[in-house]
């Protein structure tokens, strides 16, 4: 190693590596380049999820890919092998969670059925939100009790009930709990009881 200094040589190889169709150690890369050109490679993202079905809480790995049109495709769901709960296993339901996530049976637009009507109408979000807000206000104002028969302050709404929440995240449940109670709702229920 006399002619070129060690440091210079390191620089040289770093720059020249792979640039001349021959690898660092001298393997011919031509064929590999050719194959590389034919390869269609796709980038995917792995994300963490939790199974949407029972309360065991199996961890999932979800693979997604951004399509050229900007949409995201879900490629696969499998068990997360690191989880102390499921250690990579899934049951038949969890293993088909894909289908729940990628369903053409979803409701994709708000729908409205007028009293006595025999069909749904597809409507806008503004339409339903305005109408529901007005309903909540009217029903609340009609059924709100400030003081009960004994004159005790109760500040509650007796005519509106809410039930749900076993399928959405904690933070959504907390938010629903907070907002609904600010309206004075007391008829609040969840799947836990039924």
């Amino acid at each position: 190693m006399a002619t070129v200094s060690r440091r210079d040589f390191l620089k040289l190889t770093a720059i020249g590596a792979g640039a001349i169709g021959v690898s660092e150690l001298g393997f011919d890369m031509a064929h590999a380049y050719e194959v590389r050109q034919q390869l269609r490679i796709a980038g995917a993202t792995e994300s963490h999820s939790i199974c949407p079905y029972c309360a065991v809480g199996c961890s999932l790995i979800a693979y997604t890919r951004k399509n050229a049109d900007g949409s995201t495709a879900l490629l696969q769901i499998e068990g997360d092998p690191d989880s102390p709960v499921n250690e990579g296993r899934l049951c038949p339901k969890g293993a088909t969670a894909m289908e729940l996530a990628n369903s053409n049976r979803r409701v994709e637009q708000p729908k409205y059925r007028a009293p006595g009507a025999s069909d749904w109408q597809t409507v806008s979000w503004d339409f339903v939100l305005d109408k529901v807000a007005q309903h909540i206000k009217d029903s609340r104002d009609r059924t709100f009790v400030t003081k009960d028969h004994d004159g005790k302050v109760v500040n509650r709404c007796d005519g509106i009930a809410f039930a749900g929440g076993a399928a959405f995240s904690n933070e959504e449940g907390y938010f629903a709990s907070k907002v609904l109670r600010s309206l004075g709702l007391v008829y609040l229920e969840q799947q836990a009881r039924v």
């Binding site: 995917a44 495709a73 879900l74 293993a95 088909t96 990628n102």
Partner: peptide
């Protein structure tokens, strides 16, 4: 992608 575990079902 890592073809074990759940079956591969593509977006239709």
């Amino acid at each position: 992608q890592a073809g074990r575990g759940a079956r591969v079902v593509r977006r239709q």
